[in-house]
């Protein structure tokens, strides 16, 4: 850990979790030490518990009505605002990524890609609905249409391989579509996730829409899958045992399970409106069309 610059003592950052728009420590009081590849200590990081996850789900559920009820245009502006805030704090993220073993060039590329990805999904907020909706030409005298609606609370285990890009790539389509989420950050590279929570917190994103935990995948994944008030679970690693466990436990309340083990987040395949649609339901609405006595008014 850094100590002094010149003759001034540096203020070290406390890495906390992000629940309901606030930065508590884990209720469990537990921590783990995040290191770089040379085993140098970077920070004490919260080792989140099942109770933290439950608290976060409660906040996410509470935020769902408001967030899904906002105008899609407004959600687009907030995603854009997140990108703005990230751009403004680019240097801090580059610095953290470099602490976590990235080269400067890699770090700059990763942060830029995250900013651009947020802008990309900002644009989709009020467009994907038109693309994936339909007016259905039913044979009876009804007006009938189908449109996407957010699933609800999404429990997401972020890609573990990188600190920021994976997290941003899975969260952005979730919230662009009006869902709220609880995300578990990369266990080995947790720093940027916490700092990204600070970006979210200063971006007009209502508290509880995104909740970010740090901790162990093996410990928390079962709870992500079996919590009864979670609508879908997203898992991004290729570990077959965990995939099976998540699918099995998800059956408890017929959760939707989305696996992103084959996605490469750092290329163009890492973003598309289909990621938004993976966490949407389709709602179909019917209403009769009045046709009294063969009325002939019209053209």
């Amino acid at each position: 850990m850094a100590t002094t610059t010149g003759n001034r003592l540096e203020v070290l950052k406390t890495y906390k979790i992000y629940i309901g728009g606030q930065f508590p420590r884990t209720e469990s009081g537990r921590y783990y030490i995040a290191t770089n590849s040379k085993k140098e200590k970077l920070a004490n990081v919260c080792l989140s518990s099942r109770k933290d996850f439950r608290d976060a789900v409660g906040k996410a559920r509470g935020a769902f009505g408001g967030w899904s009820g906002r105008a899609a245009f407004n959600r687009g502006q907030i995603l854009y605002r997140i990108a703005e805030m990230l751009e403004g704090r680019k240097a801090q993220f580059v610095d953290e990524l470099m602490k976590q073993d990235s080269t400067k060039a890699q770090a700059e590329k990763e942060v830029s890609l995250c900013i651009d990805r947020l802008i990309y999904y900002s644009g989709w907020c009020d467009k994907f609905q038109q693309l994936f909706s339909s007016v259905n030409p039913v044979a009876s005298s009804h007006f009938n249409f189908s449109n996407p609606e957010p699933m609800g609370v999404i429990a997401t285990i972020a890609p573990q391989g990188d600190s920021l890009l994976g997290l941003v790539s899975v969260i952005a389509p979730i919230i662009a579509g009006g869902n709220t989420c609880v995300a578990l950050a990369s266990n080995t590279k947790p720093l940027c996730a916490v700092t990204f929570a600070e970006v979210l917190n200063s971006s007009d994103l209502p508290g509880g829409v995104v909740n970010i935990l740090t901790g162990k995948v093996a410990e928390l994944a079962p709870f992500f899958a079996d919590h009864m008030d979670v609508n879908a679970t997203v898992y991004c690693e290729s570990d077959a045992t965990t995939q099976k466990m998540i699918k099995e436990k998800s059956a408890l309340n017929v959760k939707r399970v989305v696996l992103y083990d084959k996605v490469k987040w750092n290329d163009a395949g890492g973003q598309s409106p289909y990621f938004i649609m993976d966490l949407q339901e389709i709602k179909t609405t019917w209403h009769p069309i009045e046709n009294i006595g063969g009325a002939k008014a019209g053209y």
Binding site: N136, V138, A139, N144, I282, T284, W286, P288
Partner: peptide
Amino acid sequence: AGVIWANTFNKFDPTSP
């Protein structure tokens, strides 16, 4: 819910998800 009927109920059609 996935299907909402307003001022009608239990209507189905091949074109309607």
